[in-house]
Amino acid sequence: MNISEYKGVMVFAEQRSGQVQKIAYELLGVGRRIADTLGEPLVALLVGSGVTDAQAKDLIAQGADEVLIADDPALAVYMTEPYAKAMTLAIETRKPGIVFTGATTIGRDLAPRVSARVRTGLTADCTGLEVEDGTRNLLMTRPAFGGNIMATIICPEHRPQMSTVRPGVMRKLERDDSRTGTVKRLGLKIEAADKNVEILEAVVEKAAKKSIEEASVLVSGGRGLGTPENFEKLNGVAAELGGLVSASRAVVDAGWVGQDRQVGQTGKTVRPDVYIACGISGMIQHIAGMEDSEFIVAVNKNAGAPIFEYSDIGIVTDVNKLVPALVEELRAVKAAG
């Protein structure tokens, strides 16, 4: 393999039901930074059915220099083999040095299949991506051992350097409609034999029914909320942040919420990007279940509550007055765009 032939950063612009997903923009954000560091172009690969020019333009406005489109009726709904064929063709014809895919349930199915096919390395669930000075290799950093340890991985002798990128970690760019770029359609033909599975039923659930271990944002309530009605109001905050509501043991024991939402030693261990503890004092059994959260916010009226020793930001105030104020503030931010 002549690795100097491989140039540019390619990102997989994941779409579902024709909607380009948030992760695609996040990949364009990190891809732009890496491409600029290398002085190479940023390519977006959009795979789907009935892909429009407007969608391609949108990807350019979000950072892409080139958009590659694989368009076929068989690509409307994600299926491993047809998508793997599309991505492999894109890699073989465009020869990118780097390929980013979202670490979603689609990306984590597709990327390993393709990496095995093109005989290159793949690093899963990256949370840090940099270019190494000198070698210009991609440094891919990821958590391992349940987040207890971080590892930086390189792929020095194979191209492209592939990684899946954890959703919610990278920042998308400000949209810029004056950006220009090229759009190319791949001459891809999906054969009947490529459709080696049959989708009998595809169900999209409006509210993703995730477990609290999978949520990237948790709004967690404790006894300090006082009543089940006050606990209920945490749902408003969770909804604004696209997260879930979780709880301390006291709240679960009181029957305000089901046990599947309990965080702590006898409940679940969670590690969300954001954990907002509302009216939770922070007994050690609770701390054991959430202390590895990326960013911890605690709200409690007792300034001496142990939870403040583990939080990144602590607010000493009446939590039941803060919750509605927080919902209002979040809505105001959203409305401002």
């Binding site: 930086t152 991985i153 403040f308």
Partner: peptide, 26 residues
């Protein structure tokens, strides 16, 4: 194809900032 270049632990976390404020400011 891949190599581990280095591994490390995330730095231990220390208590962050605590604000005694009214709910709206919080």
């Amino acid at each position: 194809p891949t190599r581990v270049k280095k591994s490390f632990t995330k730095g231990a976390k220390s208590a962050g900032k605590v604000y005694e404020v009214d709910p709206k400011e919080g």
